[in-house]
């Protein structure tokens, strides 16, 4: 292992969840993020489809990276990613029709989701397979979680329900608001996506600032108690 790598394996996995969350911090892949999150389940489905492609592409790219010349690396990554996306699209159409109808246009759109190319270029091509797998799982979990939260908030306020699963006739759906809740249509429409994302970003930043402040304070106390003479 080269000396410049100071991150631990756990850190590779964890950073996608919070510190480098693809949606809330890196603001990558906003097209699927904003467009599909009209219900909690749509967010979940998109997240899982993206996770699969990200995992496959990260594994393969970290394996082939050593033999790919620098000049053609981006075209190679694009070919690899496009292949996996097409394969997922065919698999969904053949074996999970309802899910494929629900996600519709957005599965082919995974190919332009910058998270995947971004992770290929920034992480998988420079790290070994194990780290790339952890990175992919962490990032996809962060992405899926973000989409799920966004979808859940929009669905609860927009329609008063929360849908956890939907395949053909099978539907796992809970009514959160009362039976007479009319729903706020704006939340299901595009403006609702932007408003919710903005509020969530603000919330995330506030929490982060509190955590940072606490970390600085406790670090300061620790230094003070350890070296009382130096100050």
């Amino acid at each position: 292992m080269s000396p410049k790598k100071t991150t631990t394996l756990l850190e590779d996995f964890r950073k996608g969840l919070w510190k480098d969350n693809p949606v809330f911090v890196l603001l990558l892949g906003l097209c699927p993020t904003l467009a599909v999150t009209t219900s909690a389940y749509n967010g979940l489905g998109m997240g899982i489809a993206t996770a699969f492609v990200l995992l496959c592409s990260n594994i393969l790219i970290s394996l082939i990276a050593p033999i790919v010349p620098h000049g053609v690396r981006i075209p190679v990554y694009v070919v690899v990613i496009a292949t996996f996306v097409s394969a997922v699209d065919m698999a969904l159409k053949a074996w999970m029709v309802e899910l494929s109808q629900g996600l519709g246009l957005f599965v082919p759109l995974i190919v332009v989701n910058c998270i995947i190319l971004g992770r290929a270029e920034a992480f998988a091509s420079r790290n070994n397979v194990l780290r790339s797998i952890l990175d992919a799982i962490g990032m996809s979990l962060g992405f899926t979680l973000a989409l799920f939260v966004l979808g859940a908030i929009r669905e609860i306020i927009g329609a008063g329900t929360i849908t956890l699963f939907q395949l053909g006739e099978t539907l796992i759906q809970f009514r959160v608001m009362g039976e007479d809740y009319p729903g706020i249509l704006t939340m299901i429409l595009p403006p609702g996506a932007f408003i919710t994302l903005g509020l969530l970003l603000a919330l995330k930043n506030t929490i982060q600032r509190r955590l940072d402040a606490r970390a600085t304070r406790s670090a300061a106390t620790r230094t003070a108690t350890k070296h009382p003479a130096t100050s």
Partner: peptide, 17 residues
């Protein structure tokens, strides 16, 4: 390299199809 990878990708997709 690019030709090889594109060929393999095409082959994989053909099998999937």
């Amino acid at each position: 390299v690019l030709t090889l990878i594109a060929t393999l990708a095409g082959l994989g997709l053909a099998l999937m199809n």
